[in-house]
Design a protein around this nucleic acid. Structure first.
Length: 432
RNA sequence: UCCUGGGUAGCUCAGUGGUAGAGCGAUCGGCUGUUAACCGAUUGGUCGGGGGUUCGAAUCCCUCCCCAGGAGCCA
């Protein structure tokens, strides 16, 4: 009797057994007397081999009419076979089409990205897309596990917010019962009050930026994980970010080997992502850039060229710290040793992937924070609750944010963020 | 928002002033171990939209729309 409910991923454990499975036809090759049917069930792909002489006439007729991406069911014996990429194939005793698909738009040949993006809902079925999204899923679970194992409490920050979190990026505006509301661009400010309740917290959810950025490194909607820790100061923050990144990369290497193989990702550079990461200050970075002939001056922010020039000196992520206060967020703690700079941290991924982590120690002194709010021309009333936190049991604290899509793009070595999220939201593009 | 490149068959593209093309897909036929299978045949067009120049425009000009890549900003 054939066993059903076995996933293709686990067929190796059932060699010699009769199994039944349902899935979708990836590809078919057939001669007059033998048919090869690649079937996907979501967990993997297996080839069913149907011999005209060995299956019922009705089953052979189904083999002849089946088309790419039809829904099928097949029954057969699991056999080891060296010619199969997965090591096993299914020697069929029966085959049936449950839904006949006509003219699936995405063929095994090449397509342009515009066409594929228009068909994102169907492109998801392709092997590279499945691999990248499985890595994303693994990274997401890895993030939750990392913090859960360290006794962090997950705080879900609101998506609808009354005002700019940082007063910098452009926000998506919406209507809220006669008032204006904005889609969140960061959960951090809502995380900080929760510190005094839970000590160690994190949030992980979608964030929205209405900047008219049109590059491979930007999405309008992306997912960000943000830990925030009470009594954590700057050096500890750097250690946390380093431990977080190296553990997450190790987890993907361990659990997504097959996906990285499908993506043809050279895992060598990822295996080097172990601490300690190189740590340089902003001022040292400027000196390095000048030595390379880059004319950047102290006080300028890095652009894409500068990020690439810095990261190419290192074979693992590089931490850059102590940026000029002028171009960083209002809540960053000034460096006690140099008031021109703040205790902010950026981590640049290797291989040209740019900034994946940004964080800082936060100002915990009420009067200093109030002065910064005013300095940045932010509405004090809107930030009253945020200032309140500094009035009732304030403490030093720090946190960072990591963009999930940039992490996944780097780990998978994809050339565009749009392939790291199921339904990317890009400038002027919101279909499907 | 700015700069650059592009829009021709379902898809990927060639065609730069004179009859609209190829490969793939699809359809039909053939083939017992295929891996982007192969072989033969058939099918397939508002040349992005509008206007203009010309005897004649996919091709030259104007305009609009759409797409891709990059910059700034950021994760």
């Amino acid at each position: 009797m054939a066993t059903s409910g076995i996933s293709i991923r686990r067929l190796k454990e059932h060699v010699g057994e009769q199994v039944s499975l349902q899935g979708w036809l990836v590809a078919k090759r057939s001669s007059g007397k033998i048919g090869f049917l690649q079937v996907r069930d979501g967990s993997g792909v297996v080839q069913g081999v149907a011999s005209r002489a060995e299956v019922p006439a009705a089953a052979w007729a189904e083999v002849e009419r089946v088309t790419q991406e039809s829904t099928v069911r097949m029954t057969g014996t699991v056999r080891e076979d060296k010619r199969s990429p997965s090591g096993v194939e299914l020697h069929l005793s029966d085959f049936a089409v449950d839904f006949l698909t006509e003219e699936f738009p995405i063929t095994p040949k090449e397509h342009g990205t515009a066409f594929l993006m228009e068909n994102r809902h169907l492109w998801l079925r392709s092997s590279r897309q499945r691999a990248a999204l499985r890595v994303r899923s693994e990274a997401e679970q890895g993030i939750h596990d990392f913090f859960h194992q360290r006794d962090y409490v997950r705080i879900d920050s609101p998506i609808l917010t009354p005002a700019a979190c940082e007063g910098t990026s452009t926000l998506f505006e919406t209507e809220y019962f006669g008032d204006k509301a904005y889609l969140s661009q960061s959960g951090q400010l809502y995380l900080e009050p929760a510190l005094s309740a839970f000590g160690k917290v994190y949030c992980f959810g979608p964030t929205f930026r209405a900047e008219k950025s049109k590059t491979r490194r930007h999405l309008m909607e992306f997912w960000m994980v943000e830990p925030e820790v009470a009594f954590l100061e700057f050096e500890g923050l750097c250690d946390l970010a380093e431990e977080f990144l190296s553990e997450l990369v190790a987890r993907v290497l361990d659990r997504c080997a097959e996906e990285l193989r499908v993506l043809e990702r050279d895992t060598g550079p990822l295996e080097r992502v172990v601490g300690p990461f190189p740590r340089i200050t902003y001022t040292e970075a400027i000196a390095r850039l000048n030595a390379k002939g880059n004319p950047i001056a102290w006080g300028d922010d890095f652009g894409a060229d500068e990020e690439t020039a810095i990261s190419e000196d290192f074979d693992r992520p590089v931490l850059i710290s102590r940026f000029p206060a002028a171009f960083k967020a209002f809540y960053m703690q000034p460096d006690p040793e140099d008031s021109r700079v703040v205790l902010g941290l950026d981590i640049l991924a290797p291989e040209g992937y740019g900034e994946i982590v940004g964080g800082s120690q936060r100002i915990h002194d009420h009067d200093l924070l109030l002065a910064k709010v005013r300095e940045h021309d932010l509405p004090v009333e809107a930030f009253q609750w945020y200032l309140d936190v500094r009035k009732y049991g304030s403490c030093p604290h720090a946190g960072f944010g990591m963009g999930l899509e940039r992490f996944v793009a780097w780990v998978c070595k994809l050339d565009h963020l749009r392939e790291t999220i199921p339904y990317p939201r890009m400038l002027y593009k919101i279909y499907p």
